[in-house]
Write a protein that binds this DNA or RNA. Structure first.
Lengths: 381, 381
DNA sequence: CATCGCTACTGTATCGTTACAGATTTTGTT
DNA sequence: AACAAAATCTGTAACGATACAGTAGCGATG
């Protein structure tokens, strides 16, 4: 077998080298140097360390360390031997050791608000991130904060304690203090959403402008002319994006806006429904709706129905949707799929890229809304 | 001010003690012992360590360490001084240092299948867990695995690398190899769901038996007699729980079961819909449905409607629901709320309890289904 | 043949923390 | 006064890894 052949060969090599040098440290203890770890067999059953490999190969700990890093000053033969042994005994570097010595944590921190999670957007995002991290030494640590408090809190914590090599944040604002801080302090990060500060940094974003524009197109195609937008909260960057797309759509496709700014997608479903029901009952009632969030759409539908109207008849509606609930339950609502899992993957790739020193401008991506055909009402045969 | 007063007092105390001892090591360098860290000022701007506090207080590193741990062999006065300085300079123990020395990671690992996350159950769970961990030194690391592969994989990884102090697992089986392994190896854990192996271990579970029983009660109250259950996959423990509750309900409330075992809540929505549509079109069509999952319910509704029937008229339906989508979009469906966020909190408390050595039997909890009134169709006035 | 440079390998010190085994002073006992 | 015990404080070594400054051997160079 290939493996045993190589080991025998390796064994001979050890002997040859040692006898040439004449140090004889494989046999005796005369050296009594403290760090000569290789002379002491490792305790059985314990987790293998560099010391273990050093003992098994007859090499020094340093050599083993450098061999595994593919350092240029280690012989090709030796590297192979070390790698082989390491693999055989299932060596995995001790994270605490590395972290203490080098400061490298091998941790990516996902910073979340506890509040934004109502709609369960986190789930597929976490899955997407871990999909990418699975092939790397990185672990994903979830660091939450209460958005009612200081959003800089978790960032400061990470900076102060060196808790992570990279950070993923969302709910990005046009002038985002977190981005400023992390940039200044050279902490690699990526944002879910863009900023407008003139800082070039990694991001992934959904093309909300395009979404709103295409939504307006869909609605006007159905003859709708008085359109309303359930918008993101005004402090977030994509508020502007979505509004811009919406307004550009109105202009290009010839429709008018119905004002509706009392509530946004951050409000409770009940608040949205109440506000929208009032609008639907008024003389200003729109005939087309663009919903900036899937859960918001639910409240809007309820409002429409409470007002005695019906989606697909009195009004049409397009919504962003991170899952396909709505397609199943309300196929009359048009949906544009936002692939959060993909976002997670892109974000993970981007932070890692940033950590590895790739230029930020190469770590930016925008995902396009995917218009979904309404689900067939009956089963495929 | 209180603070400066105390510091002055502390300062005087140092002098007094040192002069009595006559070692004079505060002034000179004659000691030249290597670990006498306190004689060298810490680099400005660097993260404070025990050394920093040792320098500031004039104490030894060991003393500072022990003082912060409230060890019995440190004077009350000293402890207070150390604590004060530590707080002032914002000392936080270096995790890597602690972990390397003691093996304590201060990490809780949430082990997830990538696949189960379709329905987004993870989100509120993560939030619940982090709510509890926020008040502790623990971080939450998400460790995913592909359920198509070895579910023991992540557990072995954690055992081999000592990656976490405690583990949270879900999708628990009656005879769960993960539970056996972690118990044997004394790795603290908690399961979301119960086992049937005679091992007493921490768990949190939703009372699925009760849920199904109460669901049957609701349906029979509406005169339904031919009931069907969309059940969990047969390998998971709560499959039996739910079936038991269902069958007990049938007996107690006088109804009969319609067989439907081709699909379960793990199957795709399309598969569930197709199978159920077939049933609904057959002569065996049930008039009452219990759905073991919220997303499954969506597929069932679609199937019912495809078959030309209507929930609330031809059939009634009760479903478990982790959110209130259905209440908004299909108020005619009866829902029992499963509070996943609460589950997250309970699980976190239980692992920590286990880590701290509390007896497992005190770390078990069962949450009761919460029947929800149908949502009012119109706004509150 | 001394010396240089190169290749391949190695020991020491260090990151921050804690277990352990002292060390020193104070207090108590007889 | 002598000694033991208690109360406080301390240095050393170690956890596992790596940066750095070497060293040994060997062929090439002048």
């Amino acid at each position: 077998m290939f493996v045993s052949k190589l080991r025998v060969k390796a064994g001979r090599l050890i002997v040859a080298q040692r006898s040439q040098k004449g140090t004889g440290w494989v046999t005796g203890m005369e050296g009594k140097t403290k760090n000569r770890a290789a002379t002491v067999p490792p305790p059985a059953g314990a987790r293998p360390t560099l010391k273990t490999i050093a003992f098994m190969t007859g090499l020094g700990i340093t050599t083993v360390s450098r061999a595994l890093k593919d350092a240029p000053d280690i012989g090709a033969e030796t590297k192979e031997r070390v790698r082989l042994v390491a693999k055989q005994i299932g060596y995995q570097p001790n994270r605490a050791g590395v972290r203490l010595r080098t400061g490298k944590t091998n941790v990516i921190s996902l910073v979340l608000t506890l509040e934004e999670e109502i709609m369960g957007i986190t789930s597929p995002m976490v899955v997407g991130i871990t999909e990418i991290l699975a092939g790397t030494p990185y672990h994903l640590v979830v660091t939450p904060y209460s958005s009612t408090k200081d959003p800089l809190g978790p960032i400061r914590y990470i900076l102060d304690t060196g808790a992570a090599d990279g950070v993923i944040i969302s709910r990005t604002e046009p002038h985002d203090a977190r981005v400023t801080l992390m940039t200044e302090r050279h902490l690699p990060f990526v944002t879910h959403g863009r900023t407008e500060m003139g800082i070039i940094h990694p991001f992934h974003d959904f093309d909300n402008e395009r979404f709103a524009y295409e939504a307006v197109r869909r609605l006007t195609e159905r003859g709708r002319r008085r359109l309303v937008l359930l918008e993101p909260p005004p402090n977030l960057t994509f508020h502007t994006h979505m509004r811009t797309g919406f307004e550009r759509g109105l202009k290009d496709f010839g429709a008018e806006a119905v004002s509706f700014h009392h509530v946004n997608i951050d409000h409770s479903l009940v608040a949205i429904r109440d506000a929208f029901e009032q609008l639907m009952r008024s003389v200003d009632a729109p005939d087309g709706i663009v919903s900036g969030s899937g859960s918001g759409a639910i409240a809007l539908i309820a409002a429409i129905e409470s007002a005695g109207k019906k989606v697909g008849e009195n009004v049409d509606m397009v919504t962003k949707a991170p899952s396909d609930f709505l397609r199943w339950l309300r196929p009359e609502v048009m949906t544009m799929y936002e692939d959060i899992r993909l976002a997670g993957r892109e974000l993970a790739k981007a932070v890692i890229g940033h950590i590895e020193g790739k230029p930020p401008e190469t770590l930016q991506s925008l995902s396009q809304p995917e218009f979904q055909r309404p689900m067939s009402k009956s089963r495929k045969v």
